[in-house]
């Protein structure tokens, strides 16, 4: 039986200004997978994420964490926020302290762990994200990529079971993007469920196990990257563009240049191997 770590049913949410951000959204997140959420700006990605660790409370519907309905009581909230970590898109909104070390310490200290444990977690998180060497630098002298890694370290230090990243590669250079994806793979290999939203569909196609398409506050499709990105109707409805590797592969097989073998290339390297 598949184990779902996060589930949301019939989620409805409006902001105070009346904007309906979620309109009866259903989603089930499988444990231990690499999950991507794609969709337009304003489709409701960030709003959904904020529901996953209880910052937003739905007007209607329910959210389950490990099968248990979230009731918004303090004790459960603390557990939820420890277990589900969100890395926000703009690190300047997340890093509240000028000191890298202090900022990373915030989450674990809130968990009420003893100081010795917290210091260990901070060091581990900083080393994993390759930011240990900049721990004494003030945040305002860091590059965007460094800030982003520090923001991730701040979440990692709480050792969440689910790590949610809102557009982790936005604004990063190609090398930074590649490093980020490797880092996310590492989290996943260590047992965490990783959820990200991204507009870089080539990246999503190469990386994800499961892709969800969100459009106007609803999940309109769910499936493997190949399934989703080959579904022209969905792609059109959500204004998405087919990843180039898949597009070229499908074109080449249609022309008979590549034989169908049941293997679909996920990236440049895999496509080249098929062509050799």
């Amino acid at each position: 039986m598949t184990e779902y770590i996060l589930e949301a049913y019939n989620l409805e949410f409006s902001y105070l200004d009346g904007t309906k951000a979620l309109k009866g959204l259903n989603i089930r997140i499988e444990k231990g997978k690499k999950i991507a959420l794609v969709g337009n700006n304003g489709a409701g990605k960030t709003t959904l994420f904020l529901h996953f660790n209880g910052v937003h409370r739905p007007n209607k519907g329910e959210i389950r964490f490990k099968g248990e309905v979230i009731n918004y009581y303090r004790k459960q909230m603390k557990e939820l926020r420890k277990s589900v970590g969100i890395v926000f898109q703009d690190p300047d909104n997340q890093l509240f302290s000028a000191s890298v070390y202090q900022d990373v310490s915030f989450g674990p200290v809130n968990m009420g762990w003893p100081e010795k444990v917290v210091r260990e977690k901070i060091e581990q998180a900083l080393r994993k994200t390759n930011t240990w060497s900049i721990k004494d630098k003030p945040t305002h002298f860091l590059s965007h990529g460094q800030k982003k890694r520090v923001a991730i370290a701040g979440i990692l230090a709480m050792e969440p079971e689910v790590i949610i990243l809102d557009e982790p590669t936005a604004g990063l250079d190609p090398i930074g993007t590649a490093q980020m994806m490797t880092l996310l793979d590492e989290f996943n290999q260590n047992g965490a469920t990783v959820i990200l939203s991204s507009h870089d569909l080539d990246q999503v196609y190469a990386w994800a196990d499961i892709v969800f398409v969100i459009n106007r506050g609803k999940i309109i499709a769910e499936g493997s990257p190949e399934e989703i990105f080959r579904n022209e109707e969905i792609m059109q409805q959500a204004n998405l563009i087919k990843p180039w590797a898949l597009d070229i592969f499908d074109y080449l097989t249609a022309k008979g240049i590549i034989k169908r073998t049941g293997i679909t290339p996920r990236n440049r390297r895999e496509l080249k191997i098929l062509l050799d």
Binding site: I86, D90, F96, F106, N110, M158
Partner: peptide, 11 residues
């Protein structure tokens, strides 16, 4: 935004 991110880290 800051408040949201603080809350999500257990503020």
């Amino acid at each position: 935004f800051l408040m949201e991110s603080l809350l999500s880290r257990g503020y």
